[in-house]
Design a binder for these strands. Structure first.
Length: 883
RNA sequence: GGGCGGUUAGCUCAGCUGGUAGAGCGUCGGCCUUACAAGCCGAAUGCCGGGGGUUCGAUCCCCUCACCGCCCA
């Protein structure tokens, strides 16, 4: 036995920190650009600097790491770029909250000081998320870490802005946009969450100006009525045709507004008549332009009513609504108030209600860039699973121009200057010194760009664009983007547009959309619900490998993951199992030198031949599963192989070999080491730490790193399906004896005798050759095999592929139990037999089903009938014995 | 309103191109068997959401209904 055995328990903490330090210190994951091998690259979805690692990140990183480590094993040149995102609004909010504690606002500091403050903040906390990426074991290239506000990336942003402006794809103008009063900035359409909300629908009486009647309109926003500049009905709505073209009096004001007609109106909703407020509603904005209405703004950018609201000026929009409704009710204008379930836009950063607001903003003409991005899927970029294609198309087909200016300070400032003298607008990469008119009186636009604008460039900006770098040449387009569906629009579609425009090539060949991680009840994890499972806490308690394996095992394509701590705890048992298997192996292997090799193609011993065969199958299936993004198959396949085959059978079967010594031991050592080495390699992408640790402890591996070992080569000579079948027979006989023992309550310590009346010479020979396996694993003192074996009358029995397994019973045995057991067994067989016979009796089945299927059923019917007959005979004999 | 997905063992979920329903966890029974009690051996459990259709044959394909979830308007 070895004296440098592994410690009794696996201690993830020490092991993980050691390997992390080793990999980072040695720059193990920095690719050699001159190395041979096909490139494989991934850019990390950059987490927010404000962020802390959550389960979504943990899953995202695990998947990417599996892909990268696997690609390295397959000899590819792998680059995985890490980095973080400056997250404009979110980060600014965090720093502003900090300031608020000091009783200050950002305006008290001024722009420059405030930005300095944000940078300080990011220096302090920006590394936190990076260390959490480290904790996950992510094999990123730390020498290429990027931040969206880096000098290089900022230059890329300015360059892109200027180019798009020159190409006519960026423009500035007054439009209605989504305004967050709290964050005090414009938001893009997809940054608005539509959340369900109980509200009211009020019906209001608008009298005709000529006194000839009245029109009842329905609205959810009475406070905006001061901005009404029309009432709209459906042109074919007979209730209202007479009103079209007339004027109505706007209550609470002295204004009169026209009644217009437009197909946009839903006749079924409310009263079929609606008030039109072009400055405060997206649809009304469209109506306003179509019908050339007046645009009247009544709510300011703080959510306060302005002078157009008359006596309501100065009230917040919420207060104003209450007062207006009360006053309308008092004046008899309010006809009806009803409950309404609808959805209302909320800021995705702060969850306050979004106000449609007209202002001067910058836009990307996304509608012009979308068609190319659409056409690239699936021709140049494939989405996995492909049902997301539809969602992708749907969004691009309905895309509106993208509002990219934000009225905050933290971010890439828009590279546009206005001349104070001639009014000319200058858009340039670097700050211009003077205007063409000669004036030096230039002021830069106050706004910054949407964070997603810089994220959209990530796949090429991180590789050094606009310079023509080797990284770009080698690694662009990236191989795959791994992300959640929640940012398919924000990010994926925009990267496609930008990549195609600037690189003339898609940014990634594949997009793998992974699941959302939910809690055990299927709810989204959120701090407010309090159902968050913190990955760092899980890592601390169970180790990173347990967490990674759990996530991989549940990462079935296209399905959400319901996670609970118990699952992670459960997979820690697997980690422990592997550790102990390795300990056992090491105890039975020489300390330093590699055991003398034997020829694996011709090695004797069914257990060796079988496990080597299974190992070949595992290589193929694991590789196929990872390449096909079926991580759950990869994980579960390894789990079963290691636990149910390698540990439960193989390790048990080599124990006698190890005791026997000599050549038998030498062969067992060599096969054991081979299987363990290659199994660790296969498992390494999912569980990098424990596999590396065990690897380094194996004889001959001291000082080597599993992370740089190649994928185990195929060993065609070891593919032997017939040995797998032989093994199955042996396992079946062992199982039959074990079942008898357990069901008849025979003590495990009692050594039994087993007799097998064999079905044919082949089976007899297999059992004979593997007598020792049966003796050890079925706990027998004796075993006999042959075609003419007669069962002693008092014996329990079972049938395995036509072989009658007989266990003579001695001493006190529960005879009734054996009878009941045989009845149960026969019941099962009969049930199957009836079903199969029914099938075979069906003429059209025999007629129309493929010949091989029919043949298979016939064979099965024969087997079942045979087993039935044998069992019945055995049962009869047993009855005679006990009567 | 439009789109997507789900419904399989007590729980969580696999089940690729239709051909004998699987796993993990949990449950029950028996074991300290020299790597592992975080373990070993054995067992039980399913109108594969309802209805209809295609087919010799449907968990799988088509239609429909119900319930649940998500996205977009």
């Amino acid at each position: 036995m070895s004296d440098n055995a592994l410690p009794k328990g696996y201690e993830p903490r020490d092991v993980e920190s050691r390997w992390r330090a080793h990999w980072e210190g040695n720059k193990t994951f920095t690719p050699d650009l001159d190395a041979p091998g096909e490139p494989f690259s991934i850019v990390i979805p950059p987490p927010n600097v404000t962020g802390a690692l959550h389960m979504g990140h943990a899953l995202n990183l695990t998947i990417q790491d599996i892909l990268c480590r696997h690609a390295r094993q397959k000899g590819r040149k792998v680059l995985w770029v890490p980095g973080t995102d400056h997250a404009g609004i979110a980060t600014q909010n965090v720093v502003e909250r900090g300031l608020a504690k000091e009783g200050k606002g950002r305006h008290d500091l001024g722009r420059e000081k405030f930005i300095e403050r944000v940078w300080e903040w990011r220096e302090e906390y920006g590394t936190r998320i990076l260390n959490q990426i480290r904790a996950m074991g992510a094999s990123v290239d730390w020498t290429r870490e990027r931040f969206t506000m880096d000098e290089g990336l900022s230059r890329a942003v300015r360059q892109v802005f200027v180019k798009l402006y020159d190409d006519g794809l960026i423009y500035k103008g007054d439009y209605i946009i989504n305004w967050c009063n709290r964050c005090h900035t414009a938001l893009a359409d997809d940054e608005v969450d539509h959340l369900p909300r109980k509200d009211h629908l009020w019906q209001l009486r608008y009298p005709l100006a000529d006194g000839s009647g009245e029109l009842v309109i329905a609205t959810t926003r009475p406070e905006t009525m001061f901005g009404d500049t029309a009432v709209c009905v459906h042109p074919e709505d007979e209730r209202y045709t007479a009103f079209i073209g007339k004027m109505v009096k706007l209550p609470l004001t002295d204004r009169e507004i026209p009644v217009i007609a437009d197909n946009y109106v839903d006749r079924e909703f409310g009263t079929g008549a609606l008030k039109v407020t072009p400055s405060h509603d997206h649809n009304d904005w469209e109506l306003g332009h179509r019908h050339k209405l007046e645009f009247l703004q009544v709510i300011d950018e703080n959510g306060v009513m302005n002078e157009h609201a008359g006596i309501y000026a100065g009230l917040t929009k919420e207060e104003c609504r209450k007062r207006v409704v009360a006053d309308l009710a008092a004046q008899g204008v309010l006809v009806k108030e009803e409950e309404l379930d609808h959805s209302v836009g909320h800021c995705y950063r702060c969850k306050s209600v979004i106000e449609p607001h007209v202002s001067t903003q910058w836009f990307v003409a996304a509608s012009k860039m979308a068609p190319r991005a659409r056409a690239a899927v699936p021709a140049a970029t494939q989405i996995f699973p492909d049902n997301w294609e539809k969602t992708y198309y749907n969004w691009l087909d309905n895309i509106r121009d993208w509002c990219i200016s934000r009225q905050i300070w933290w971010g890439h400032r828009i590279p546009a200057w206005t001349c104070g003298d001639c009014g000319k607008l200058i858009v340039a990469v670097d700050a211009p010194e003077r205007c063409a008119c000669g004036s030096a009186n230039l002021t830069q636009d106050e706004d910054v760009l949407d964070t997603w604008f810089s994220s959209a460039l990530w796949p090429f900006s991180t590789m050094g664009w606009p310079d023509d770098t080797r990284e770009l040449k080698t690694f662009y387009p990236t191989s795959v983007l791994v992300t959640g569906f929640d940012i398919l629009f924000f990010w994926v579609a925009r990267m496609m547009m930008m990549g195609l425009h600037f690189m003339d090539e898609v940014p990634f060949r594949h997009v793998y959309i992974h699941a959302l991680v939910r809690d055990a009840e299927g709810r989204k994890m959120s701090k407010s619900t309090g159902n968050v499972i913190d990955p760092l806490e899980m890592i601390d308690k169970y180790g990173t490998d347990s967490l990674r394996f759990t996530l991989a095992a549940f990462a079935a394509m296209g399905r959400d993951i319901k996670l609970s701590e118990e699952r992670i705890e459960g997979y820690r048992h697997f980690v422990n199992k592997l550790w102990n298997a390795a300990r056992f192996a090491l105890m039975n292997l020489p300390d330093d030198e590699v055991p003398a090799p034997v020829d694996l193609d011709t090695v004797q011993g069914l257990h060796h031949r079988w496990i080597l065969h299974r190992l070949e199958e595992m290589k193929e299936s694991t590789d196929a599963a990872i390449v096909g993004y079926r991580f759950n198959d990869a994980a579960q396949g390894m789990y079963r192989f290691i636990w149910n085959e390698f540990c439960d059978w193989y390790l048990e079967l080599i124990k006698p070999d190890m005791q026997a010594g000599g050549e038998r031991k030498a062969a067992a050592q060599h096969v054991l080491l081979t299987v363990l080495r290659e199994t660790l390699t296969l498992l390494h992408p999912i569980m990098p730490f424990i596999t590396s640790e065990i690897w380094a402890a194996l004889p001959g591996n001291a000082g080597t790193d599993l992370a740089v070992q190649p994928f185990p080569a195929a060993r065609p000579g070891c593919v032997r399906a017939e040995d797998a079948a032989r093994m199955e027979l042996v396992q079946g006989v062992i199982g039959a004896v074990r079942t008898i023992r357990a069901e008849l309550n025979i003590a495990p310590s009692l050594r039994l005798t087993a007799l097998v009346r064999t079905a044919n010479e082949h089976d007899r020979q297999v059992l004979e050759e593997n007598r020792q396996m049966l003796l050890v694993l079925a706990r027998l003192e004796n075993a006999e095999f042959g075609p003419a074996i007669e069962a002693p009358k008092a014996s329990a029995s079972n049938v395995v592929s036509g072989n009658e397994v007989i266990v003579p019973l001695t001493g006190a045995v529960d005879f009734e139990a054996e009878l009941a057991r045989l009845d149960k067994e026969l019941g099962k067989i009969e049930k199957d037999l009836v079903q199969v016979n029914k099938k075979l009796a069906n003429e059209s089945f025999v007629d129309k089903a493929p010949a091989e299927v029919v043949a298979k059923e016939r064979a099965r019917a024969g087997e079942l009938a045979d087993a039935k007959a044998k069992l019945e005979a055995l049962q009869q004999r047993f009855r005679e014995a006990i009567s």
